[in-house]
Design a protein around this nucleic acid. Structure first.
Lengths: 296, 296
DNA sequence: TAAAAATACTCCATAGGTATTTTAT
DNA sequence: ATAAAATACCTATGGAGTATTTTTA
């Protein structure tokens, strides 16, 4: 099997038309280069160079060989180039999954900064529900995904980077509207509007308001937080949204009021998940650092 | 420096998604392949595969690497292909120089056969005078050249393949026209028409008719045998042509007569010349065999 | 005779093999 | 417990160096 080294040496000889000069350019002895070329020629059963003590000529087949050899060399150089560019962090494609109750609110806050800091980074964002994202991460279709915990994760790493409380969004006309804090207990009698099945936010909301099962009208489950907010504006009940979503959801609905849900502990924790042996944890860590800075 | 072997192994792993199967495909042990991949990854400072005891995944950078690696592999395969095709003789480009007093008469006789026998052969034919061709062969611009000997050749191989006599072409109206043989002595009084300086045929003709110098009118030197024949047809004198040129020169000039020049020994010997260390002498020998068959 | 490539010879790095260990399911 | 990759360890090949020889212009 021929080697890249042989090819490199052959190209040097072709360039310098001189074995000694070529060997110096390759930082090896004349002997080493000479035997490498001989070996190459005998392996390929072709004479690439015609040489005597005065000149080095390239044979017609040598010309053909060198043409191909040069292309090999360039491709190999490309590989080294790739390797080098990777020593710079986040300079290669990264695919990130994100759930619908995080993506639209988190990414606009953080991605501009990411793009500014790592202009070479090619980001592929996939929005889907947690279970789909977990599958994709497991199968290697995604490098990582941003989920809201608690969520059952087996054999995956979770890199938590943020935590937040829930807020109850209600209409100004309800009796809750004057409150600044509310407990789940106080919501016992209210109509809670939730996302449809599959959204982890629904399960997390139910977990926080564990008493609620009877009071939830599943016929009103929404497909996104925006639709839920529209329903709240239509006085059909209350809903529960994560803190980071408040700004974009409420900015033009002046008749709506967000009330902090006063329950012990954070309600959801945001985390990057990866396979246990994912290659570029360091990049995730860099992203997390940036995310924290932007969210603060 | 990474090796083609490492690249081959990596491509096999990417294909089989399994180290053991890949190692079998490469006819090496799992251990050898495993260490080769590790070494490749550490040299490139990138993780190409993510592996555990159940699965092998390709990392995003691995994907980039493998893309380039595949191109390298294909180019290298091309080189092996080239090597293989060379084991078939005359399957690669060959440049041949030929002098004007040989080319137009010899090549139409032999090249059709050559093309039939070696359809892959790409022939580049250069027509020029001997001294130019010798230079080009020496500099490696031509693989070989077909010359007429005697000709001074230093440090070149001559592969003689044919020899022929000269004929005197004269007009039917001259006193020579009835003869079948003629000696140079009998030409002493005739007006010889020769090619201009630089054509070896002129020198060879002079050598055969060594006495002639006084009787040659250099103001009539021609640029090709065809022009000389036209001058003979115009009754301006006689000329001397090699045997192989007779057919095409005389076929429509019924008023001309060719007379064998009766001098001891062949008048010119045709030979391929090459550099002493030319790579593909075997191909020249194959050509010579074909040429002889076709000329006989 | 001189300049250049080839060769002889030695040494060391490394590729490859077998056997074993580690690891995660 | 099992399947798979990693590792330890040994061997042998081959690549690289220095010194020398061959070659031919």
């Amino acid at each position: 099997m021929i080697t890249i080294k042989q090819i490199t040496y052959a190209l040097a000889v072709a360039k310098h038309k001189h074995f000694k000069k070529a060997s110096e350019a390759c930082h090896v002895s004349q002997s080493a280069l000479s035997t490498a070329i001989s070996e190459l020629e005998s392996q390929l059963k072709m004479q690439i160079f015609e040489r005597d003590n005065k000149k080095v000529l390239i044979t017609p087949v040598g010309e053909l060989f060198l043409e191909k050899a040069l292309r090999v060399k360039m491709e190999v150089d490309d590989i080294y180039q790739l390797s080098k560019s990777l020593s710079e962090p986040l300079s290669f494609p990264l695919s990130i999954g994100v759930i619908p109750t995080i993506g639209p609110y988190l990414l606009p806050k953080v991605l501009p900064r990411v793009r500014a800091e790592f202009p070479k980074l090619q980001l592929k964002i996939v929005e889907d529900q947690s279970h789909t994202l977990v599958d994709k991460v497991r199968r290697g279709e995604l490098d990582t995904a941003i989920l809201a915990l608690p969520y059952p994760l087996e054999n995956l790493h979770a890199f938590e980077f943020w935590q937040e409380d829930f807020f109850i969004v209600t209409h100004q006309s309800t009796s809750y509207a004057g409150m600044n804090e509310i407990s789940s207990e106080q919501l016992r009698e209210s109509q809670l509007l939730l996302l449809e099945d599959g959204h982890c936010l629904k399960d997390q909301a139910l977990a926080v308001c564990s008493f609620q099962t009877g009071k939830i009208d599943h016929s009103f489950s929404g497909t996104s937080l925006y639709t839920l907010i529209e329903m709240v504006a239509g006085k059909m009940g209350q809903t529960l949204v994560p803190e980071m979503a408040l700004d974009s959801l409420l900015d033009k609905n002046v008749e709506l009021k967000a009330i902090h849900l006063n329950e012990p502990g954070p309600h959801r924790r945001l985390a990057f998940i990866t396979r246990l042996n994912y290659a570029n944890v360091s990049n995730i860590e860099i992203l997390i650092k940036l995310f924290k800075q932007q969210l603060a």
